[in-house]
Amino acid sequence: MEYSWEDLRAIFVMQGFAGISLFSVLLLMGLGLALIFGQMGVINMAHGEFMALGAYTVYFCSELTQSLAPSFGPYYFVIAIGLAFLGSALLGALVEWAMIRHLYHRPLDTLLATWGLSLILQQTYRSIFGAREVTPELPGWLMGSFSVSDTIDIPINGVFVLGLAIAVTCGVLLFMFRTPFGLRLRATVQNRKMSGAVGINTEKVDRLAFAIGCGIAGIAGAAFTTIGSTGPDSGSRYIVDAFLVVVFGGAASLFGSVVSAFGIAQAQSILEFFLEGTMGKVATLFFIVVVLMFRPQGLFPGKVRSN
């Protein structure tokens, strides 16, 4: 098939906008993981399930609003995002307390234990919400699209999700680099013993960091509801991509996660147009794996020595 330059430009723009929604979800997933995995070295295989928890929280709020206060419909979504964050963060803190903190010195084992957790959570969602995918009733202001030109429409939900992702990213960066807690977290990551010696409660730092990482996954779930429907295994579909975002970007670098999330999302959605079916995803993943074989430290290696 031959494409003219005009066609190609239109394809790139359209698929690019489709990729932006994916980018936002991947970015939010990746940010949470970058905190948990990049900073703390814990592989949280249940991260996708924390995302699904956020999505189900939004669905639950939507159902509640529908039945109790329909007039509240247009506004509930904003509150639901907050609840999604809180819900996932609380569960995250609980999991850290019960499980993760016993496994910090065995990083590979956190992977296996959290995989067990993800099985349990998935089945819990299936028992509560059913195996079918659910979609919350989205407020009217999220629907529709702006028309930029005759051929290009920008969907509002995509813009909203992008805005949300950018806001959360800025929030995390501010939090990490401009607050006392962020300072303590970075200190703990760099040298745990020394941080403890100067009076930082490293256990508390770990718990809060894990909770915040999970909370961000919850926001990712809330964002996800605007672009797709949620099922018990929705989260697990994104888990490999999310890990690759973090590894490809450079595990210790939040900025790297942003860049690689963008690259992976755009490559996938643009390639999906040219290659049939899932081959766009295969090509993207293959490219990343090959790059990682030659450059295992990722695109933007952190300044912290890993060993």
Partner: peptide, 12 residues
């Protein structure tokens, strides 16, 4: 490359 990175790459 070892440890968790190897695990993630092989998973991919």
């Amino acid at each position: 490359v070892g440890g968790v990175y190897f695990a993630i790459i092989t998973q991919a």
